[in-house]
Design a protein around this nucleic acid. Structure first.
Lengths: 147, 147
DNA sequence: CCTTTTTGTTAATCACGGTTAACATTATAT
DNA sequence: ATATAATGTTAACCGTGATTAACAAAAAGG
């Protein structure tokens, strides 16, 4: 099991790969507001855990295992974010911050249950709209897709 | 701002104080499954932060500030636990573990919103019981008190 | 090309939270 | 009252994740 800190590096590398097509130490450092040596260290550590492919001064890529883990982390983030934003009605900025803080702490099962719950509640709220369009809980009464 | 780790020591000291009337290094260490030197270190650190009253080989007590913080942490735990157990329907053990993991991460505002939400949902579920006693979401349809 | 700039790495260091081993103090029991 | 047991403290150390300063390599521009 890799640490939260390392997962965070991995996640950001994954996002950068999708965004720019490649992963660079400088970009990761900028994105994470940390120093380049920190990224370099993380890189070595992630490599030791078979999550990235990397040689000194070479290109950086995620292994299949690394991609899977990154996706799982992002999915956890998404579902927690959705809960905070659309169920608890926190504003986007706060939902983002709070989701970021706890996404890596929760077990797979909890994330699954939360996903099911959010799905169910957003649907329920949509139905409620037919009865009382102005009631407070209808702020989030738009049917959404959860992948 | 004191660290999560220190908050955890503080919380456990508070609980032991309520439970036994006094706080002892050995008891804290047992409760937290850590060594006595760790407790001792935490003690010095908490003292520096004006959260405990403590002299070498002397009795340990929480300051008013320390008690307030400990109570806040416990309240956060309780509300998160309740959410996992009675809203998400996790079993008690899992709800406990998950609540423990994230209680100190969430902002005051999030905890407040979560408290309001849990309160509301448990009431709603109670009402739902009148319509369909057997539907799945009624597993948690008992009216509960949240202090 | 070759100089300059950007990028990446290494070394040394730090803070934090934890440990074990050794020691000091306090409490207990006979 | 004192030997023994329990409790608490200190010192030395470790791993993790971060830093800055210095350096090496690669890329870019003239």
């Amino acid at each position: 099991m890799v640490s939260k800190a390392l997962e965070e590096y991995l996640k950001n590398m994954y996002v950068l790969k999708k965004q720019y097509g490649n992963i660079r130490v400088t970009d990761v450092a900028k994105k994470m507001n940390c120093s380049k040596p920190s990224v370099n260290k993380a890189l070595h550590n992630l490599k030791d855990n078979n999550l990235v492919i990397y040689e000194t001064y070479g290109t950086i890529d995620l292994t299949e295992q690394g991609e899977d883990l990154a996706k799982k982390i992002l999915e956890a983030y998404d579902i927690v974010y959705l809960f905070f934003k659309d169920v608890l009605n926190l504003n986007s900025e706060e939902a983002e911050i709070e989701a970021e803080k706890i996404k890596s702490n929760l077990s797979d099962n909890t994330i699954n249950e939360l996903a099911k719950y959010v799905h169910k509640v957003l649907d329920l709220n949509s139905l409620d709209c037919n009865y009382d369009i102005n009631q407070e809980k209808c702020r989030s009464c738009v049917r959404r897709k959860i992948n």
